[in-house]
């Protein structure tokens, strides 16, 4: 019984940490993408726009990874 409870606690902690870190990372990337794009457009900075595109590309990569996880035929 104690082993079962430990398993559940470990499972919960893993999901909690993963979810908070990944959700935080997605929010950071997407928000930075929007902000850098606006700043780059207003100031005419190609570098900022390029970094913004990298942020959005990372978001797309996360979405693709989510699809990979969801579809068993891929793994």
């Amino acid at each position: 019984m104690q082993e079962l409870i430990m398993q559940e606690v470990t499972g919960f902690a893993t999901v909690l940490i993963t979810a908070v870190v990944v959700a935080g990372a997605i929010a950071t990337l997407y928000s930075c993408g929007l902000r850098l794009w606006e700043k780059g457009s207003d100031g005419g900075s190609a570098v900022l726009r390029a970094v913004s595109v990298v942020c959005f590309a990372a978001c797309v990569a996360i979405v693709l990874f989510a699809l990979w996880l969801m579809i068993p035929i891929f793994h």
Binding site: F12, V15, L16, A19, V20, V22, A23, G24, I26, A27, T28, Y30, S31, C32, L34, R35, E38
Partner: peptide, 24 residues
């Protein structure tokens, strides 16, 4: 779990985008 993840994401979004044009 979901509440904490969403709370964190919301705080981050607010911190990064608060100075932006809100319509954008």
């Amino acid at each position: 779990v979901a509440g904490l993840a969403s709370f964190t994401a919301t705080k981050i979004i607010t911190a990064i985008t608060s100075r932006m044009d809100q319509s954008k």
